[in-house]
């Protein structure tokens, strides 16, 4: 991850979901996000973001066997890579340093 480059909000959430699930396909990740955050993200957005994260080297994927239930279409399973973990650490550190000292103000509305 380049210095100063931050993860987008959806990228961040997707990586965190993948960290929780360890190995998952698009719909699993979507369900996890919906269950935890209540955000209903379209499957198109999930795959487009995963594709981008794979291009950046933060996640990897492999093709699982096709099933008749899926109309003979194969599953694509995603995994978090070490670079993705590092990107999450950098993001967390950035957020922590930016919120240091203002947490009280954040909690008062």
């Amino acid at each position: 991850m380049k210095r100063g480059e931050l993860l987008g909000s959806l990228e961040h959430i997707l990586l965190l979901a993948l960290m929780r699930l360890e190995e998952a396909h698009g719909m699993d990740i979507r369900r996890e996000i919906e269950a935890r955050t209540g955000r209903d993200i379209s499957i198109g957005a999930v795959y487009a973001t995963l594709e981008r994260l794979e291009e950046k080297g933060y996640v990897s994927s492999f093709i699982a066997e096709a099933t008749p239930e899926r109309g003979g279409r194969s599953k694509r399973i995603f995994q978090l890579r070490a670079a993705g973990k590092r990107a999450l650490q950098v993001s967390e550190e950035t957020i922590r340093s930016m919120t240091a000292g203002i947490k009280v103000r954040l909690n008062t509305t």
Binding site: H25, G26, M27, I43, G44, Y47, I63, A66, E69, R70, G71, R73, S74, K75, R76
Partner: peptide, 8 residues
Amino acid sequence: EALVGDLI
């Protein structure tokens, strides 16, 4: 393929 498969 993965996207349409997941939707199905």
